[in-house]
Design a protein around this nucleic acid. Sequence first.
RNA 1: GUCCCCAUCGUCUAGGGGUUAGGACUCGGGAUUUUCGAUCCCGCAGCAGGGGUUCGAAUCCCCUUGGGGACACCA
Length: 508
Amino acid sequence: MNSLTNVRVRFAPSPTGFVHIGGLRTALYNYLYARKHGGTFILRIEDTDRERFVEGATENLISVLEWAGLVPDEGPRQGGNYGPYFQSQRTEIYQKYARELLDKGFAYYAFDTPEEIEAARQRARQSGNQFMKYNFTIRHEMSNSLNMTPQALRAALDAGKPYVIRLLVPEGRQFEVDDEIRGRVVFDSREIDDQVLLKSDGFPTYHLANVVDDHLMEISHVIRGEEWLSSVPKHLLLYECFGWTPPHMAHLPLIFNPDGSKMSKRDIQSLDELPSGKVDPDVASYIRKGYEKAAIINYIALLGWNPGEGDDRQVFDLPELVQEFSLQRVNKSAAIFDLKKLQWLNKEHIMRRDVASLMEELKPALRKAGYTDVADDYLARAVGLMRERLYFTEDFVKLAGYFFNDPTSYDEQAAQKRWQEDTPELLRQFAEAIRKLDTFTAGAIEETLRQVAEAHNSSGGKLIHPLRLAVTGVSVGPGLFELLEVLGKETVLRRIDRGMEIIPKLIS
RNA sequence: GUCCCCAUCGUCUAGGGGUUAGGACUCGGGAUUUUCGAUCCCGCAGCAGGGGUUCGAAUCCCCUUGGGGACACCA
């Protein structure tokens, strides 16, 4: 089982300012794989694009990962023997390796200005080629060291002419990956271009930095989104040029909007009003909306993975996912993000939480709603009754106010339907009967109620519905007898009186 | 456009030659002689199309179609 020695995996996001749902799933699968195989989970920040630098993005990213419980073993915050873990702090390393490629003849200097590149692109377009490739087809007409004498190159370098370093991609080579998820995939080298490895500002591009770091950090498995699959041949070529063994690769299926489009931050104008068919890709939005972290983790785990034949479980916590996870059971096809199922899982996870932790979480919201001075044991009983009916923890505040305050209004529709001619008399009798009760427990209350109803040749429902209305003001809630027990005799009697006074006026 | 990936209910998926094609979400219905977005039952709904291979194909192969990704001095 643990025959894989030294599993080292990494989550390598670029700090764009928010954490994408798909990114979180990539992080999760990496984390699960590491834990499953006793390996190391590494966080590496790919911040080589200084034009897209976003203030605070890295801090945000780390805090979301920690919130989700996906704490790296090595990374910016915890350090490690393979640092630094910011690519922006590793530029000399990449420059050194770029020079090595230059020396070996696997890369070359290119001095083309952006204007010259654009002009070449124009020429290609005019001859019907939408996407120009800077490769064997045109590199001999461009301004690069392949077309210069050593003296001219020296002169250009000495003159400080801006340059990039490009990978010299051979013609007519085949590159094969045996992807852990997709199986064998073959690429022809004529399809890739002479990728820029080092930009004119001295920073590496993704491809160089990624390959160098994965090697230096001894990454055993590269687990990332499918959008990287077509970059694999470039990476394989680089490994080959350096003489390194490439890591195992696993390209995960993508996650889409309900309408099949790519989940994009651009779709999001406001948090609640999404264009139809779109869904918010920002993990922070879900946190803010009050989703359980366990539900989010559970849901995205299931988006592209399942525990396998004969295992119908849908609800998993993180340790269970670690136990069950395997790359072999990751799907090939893209998945659509379904809010409804996430919400259902949210409810399932709330239901499984212990009352004490729910209570603690609810306290600030309760205080804010004006329910102060609530005794812990009372709150615990209320939460216990409501726990399995909540889609969000905050629903408790909206749905269960009657545990703390007498109702100030009554559901008129319910009143119309349930408040009948004999209701006042029944309630009066019931109130009398429970007044005499020594033990105000659900069992005793139910017995009493049934007796009163029977004495009137009436059904329990005749009393139960108006009673609930009088006591809570609404028509839905937990089982009535347990509810009354928690509220306590005095409160119940007081509310019956009040209800009998006010409700009849509503329906006249 | 070129290359690459993908294709089972509306959605997430099981199923990898012989199954009444299974589960989950959603939706609909019923039960709970106490409500409900709770719970429990029941139901609706699917192998994209066409060719092969085979006694037999959702399953293997090919084509078509559809969806997606990549094609930057962004990752």
